[in-house]
Write a protein that binds this DNA or RNA. Structure first.
Lengths: 254, 254
DNA sequence: CAGTGGTCTAGACCACATG
DNA sequence: ATGTGGTCTAGACCACTGT
């Protein structure tokens, strides 16, 4: 089916534009159309988008306007552009996750994806913390996942992950890979594009200390992360407790 | 003196351009000219830049090219653009510092600039850590500054700051305000535009514990920050030890 | 070679702020 | 009314990638 021009679809004419309260610039509307299509799976991660002139003709806007929309998509790591090749929907391969979301780095500067070992998988009811962080109903069914992670032989992270069961049906019966975000995308159609993290220093509880093979009270970096999908909905709440004797969390601000 | 066009100054003609190894797009050259002028103080923080058509005519490039350069400057928070008003060089007022560089937030969500109390000011020689982080000569003269910070009545941060003496002559004899970055800019012409931070969880040493009025071994969030000036040179190394029982470090990733 | 993204231009018009 | 930044267009040409 023809998608029609953005202008006629969203901004009927220039005279009417001023009366529309939620008016957005054309390039922003193009951006939203493209995000929607990616979210709906019209183009899947790794696929090439149509060329810039094609998108422009399809939506009835100019080259420059499409470009500005794609610039924003690229700035948010939703697409990858390669001169001479094309524009591709970003995927969640290990390298991207590592670069974008996994901020724990060895003090030597080495940056490696950690191995994971699952400790437990449970179905639980959402408590008030989960309700607040994931915006689910009180008592909603959740999948809770505990695991420990290590780099090389060294245990370094204990992690508790909470997922709304309804967004990830049957995940509790699956074999769980190292890179969960790739699983969320490929099996459940949930593409993580943004996270917010709250960091604290805490002392290891006895149970966590046991899992990490350290003394109770050992200082740990607690990373409390909520991850959001391309549709803006919170999809995962994860609390990681990290041993930072030989690693650190890297944060560049500008 | 006339600044001349960017094109004739940096890219004599299109045929020759390919032979230049360090070729950069025009808008990038415009960007660099503008950064240089801001760094040199041609326009100071708070000043308005010339209008877009003026800059375009001045440098002999088109409106669109100037715009793309200014877009980058604005994206890096070096300038602030206000429709109908003009483009202004960004300043380091408390609100900006708070938003851009001070990531410690109360668990309640409240975001306040902390009060500071200076503990000591010393002149020391650069040790190997300082040499590595600030790229100064071994044994270079440094100013070392210890202080504690509090929000309301609550002590929450012990901080040790190291500055190359040559970049901040006489700072050791000054009264030191709460907002050091603003002092660096207004008195020493050093505008901080970027930082890199390494975070760890550590236990409070006896001396730090005393300053923060907590028990030795209390878990603290250690923030090890190097701040860079607009010229790209490292200007400050700061290690902050933060009590995170009622606060956290906020990090949004996308 | 053809097709892709990347750069640059010139000009029109809009939205906002100030006098 | 004037001047500012913000949006949008149409078209030219460049640089890179694969056939």
């Amino acid at each position: 089916m023809a998608s029609g021009s953005v202008r006629t679809a969203v901004r009927p004419d220039k005279a009417a534009a001023e009366e529309v309260p939620g008016f957005r610039p054309l390039y922003r509307q193009v951006y939203e159309v493209l995000v929607r299509r990616i979210a709906e799976g019209v183009w899947k991660p790794g696929d090439a988008l149509p060329s810039e002139p094609e998108i422009a003709a399809d939506l009835g806007v100019s080259h420059g306007t499409v470009r500005k929309a794609l610039d924003e998509l690229a700035a948010e790591n939703l697409v990858l552009r390669r001169q001479g090749r094309g524009t591709y929907v970003a995927s969640h391969d290990d390298a991207r996750i590592l670069f974008q979301f996994f901020k724990i780095v060895a003090d030597t500067g080495e940056h490696r994806f950690p191995e994971s070992r699952i400790l437990s998988v449970d179905i639980v009811d959402a408590d008030s913390d989960a309700v607040q962080r994931l915006a689910v109903r009180a008592g909603a069914r959740m999948v809770r996942l505990d695991r420990v992670r290590s780099v090389g032989e060294k245990l370094c992270i204990f992690e508790r992950i909470l997922l709304p069961k309804v967004m990830f049906p049957g995940i509790e019966k699956r074999a769980l890979p190292n890179n969960l975000y790739e699983l969320y995308r490929s099996v459940f159609g949930v593409t993580i594009v943004r996270t917010t993290e709250k960091l604290k220093a805490v002392g290891a509880t006895r149970s966590v200390a046991k899992h990490l093979d350290v003394a109770a009270g050992t200082p740990l970096l607690q990373v409390d992360r909520v991850a959001f999908g391309i549709d803006g909905k919170a999809a995962e709440w994860r609390v990681s407790l990290c041993l930072t004797d030989t690693t650190h969390y890297l944060s560049d601000l500008r």
